[in-house]
Design a protein around this nucleic acid. Structure first.
Lengths: 252, 252
DNA sequence: CGACTTCTTGAGGATATTCAAGAATAGTGG
DNA sequence: CCACTATTCTTGAATATCCTCAAGAAGTCG
């Protein structure tokens, strides 16, 4: 496992602090310490691992290690190998996202996960989560929602891929990125694009040339302003029109 | 609920027979009756409902009724309304498939479900499944696999939509249909197409004209033979080549 | 059998891809 | 810190593909 560069066992002894920092705290509903007494046994043992950009968390056809991962910081891309040799991006995942829900009780990974930037990843064995869910019915409920949400997200993505026009897909992608960033910090008007154009193309079912052209077209109109890895949408209303299907010529 | 035409409460009194017929028997691992004694309480109360072709099981924006459905017989399509007004098909579901996994603990359906043919649907309240899962750890495991499998299936569908060529998508669709039919009955060389061309188009992100053209192209080459609602793939190897990205001219 | 819908097929036009070359960026070592 | 190289990004022109519009054929249902 040369790609797991730093394996740090969390050494926080204060169990309360541990729960507050815990990315699982949305699941720890019933037996969360209410403040005074620290439980002897922490809800879930976590290990934290560090990835540099380009490092793999796991690869396609790796044996599934029955762990779930939660992104503390950084961005991850989930990909598959297309039948034609090209790479298909399943999803871009940011802080707070869960990884591995699609491989519960499976033998093999059917997707690979690569870090796009430096990442901090919390990992827990599925057995531990499982016993938590047994103990806490409301956690099981929350976990069910998590899985439902993942399925719903994939359905949305599929809907995006069926949008006929290229600009339409790109516009939807940008808006989605922005909304996601705003979910973390409200009133945030900018979002990042840590992935390459080729990655975006593989995600949207286009070529990198076309993605470039679409971005240029939006920029020319002043609706999109881009720095190195961040972008803003000054003409957000217009971009939303495009995402909804309004026609837009690529050449000016 | 005018669309639920016939609501039949299962009147089988023999609990053992009930378990054997139960579509959930893959989940009833631990406390399944081993043959002799019939348990007083059946694992899961089921209701069976009947739909005619065109009837809705539920519609988009219906309140989620917290029930899960399993298809006993027939075919169902799951759809959403696209942003541009058109219909987007999420998935075609056949016998054995579960419906409603994407709405666990959600308030509202974000998809509609329509019967394509006559259907027998078994329904169970989610609370009952939930208590079963609490009692039976191994059921929870199987259920987790079910959810994982659903997520994985959506990822595959998304991969299909990213295939650039139209014939490629159609070929993949036909092969997928065939594999699914073979999963039920092995050595079955034919599968059904209970949906309209428009539905296929909405599923693949194409127009019905293009779907027709692609099917005709495959038929002209003798790789596909179609009856009314069933088809076979005499040139399956060739169709697999097309699905993998081999070029194929639509006009001969 | 007749009216309806769905399916097939044609021709023309719009859109994305391919191929390619130049510009910008990132990464490396002096 | 800067120069050099390699990769990624942008943009152009030509081609291929798919969509639109439309009309005729086939199938479905009363």
């Amino acid at each position: 496992m040369a790609h797991r560069l730093r394996l740090v066992t969390d050494s926080v002894t204060d169990a309360i602090r541990r729960c507050q920092d815990c990315p699982l705290n949305t699941l720890c509903l019933d037996e969360a310490p209410s403040g005074a007494v620290a439980p002897q046994q922490p809800c879930l043992e976590q290990r934290c691992l560090h990835l540099n950009g380009g490092d793999h968390l796991f690869r396609v056809s790796d044996e599934a290690d029955q762990h779930l991962h939660i992104i503390r910081s950084g961005d991850i891309k989930l990909y598959q190998h297309g039948r034609d040799g090209g790479q298909h991006i399943i999803e871009f995942l940011g802080p707070g996202a869960w990884i591995g829900l699609e491989s519960l009780n499976e033998d093999q990974r059917h997707a690979g996960a690569v870090a796009l930037t430096e990442c901090e990843i919390a990992s827990i064995p599925y057995t531990m989560l499982s016993s938590l869910l047994d103990r806490q019915p409301r956690s099981a409920e929350a976990f069910g929602q998590l899985l439902s949400g993942t399925i719903a997200r994939h359905q949305q993505h599929a809907a995006m891929l069926r949008s006929t026009s290229a600009v339409q897909r790109v516009a939807q992608f940008l808006l989605h990125r922005l909304e996601q960033a705003q979910g973390v910090a409200h009133h945030m008007a900018k979002a990042t694009l840590p992935m390459s154009r080729q990655d975006i193309a593989d995600y949207l079912g286009l070529t990198s040339s076309t993605v470039s052209r679409c971005l240029s077209a939006l920029r020319r109109r002043g609706w999109l302003s881009m720095g190195q890895r961040a972008f803003m949408l000054p003409g957000r209303a217009d971009v939303e029109m495009v995402a909804a299907g309004a026609p837009l010529a690529l050449d000016d």
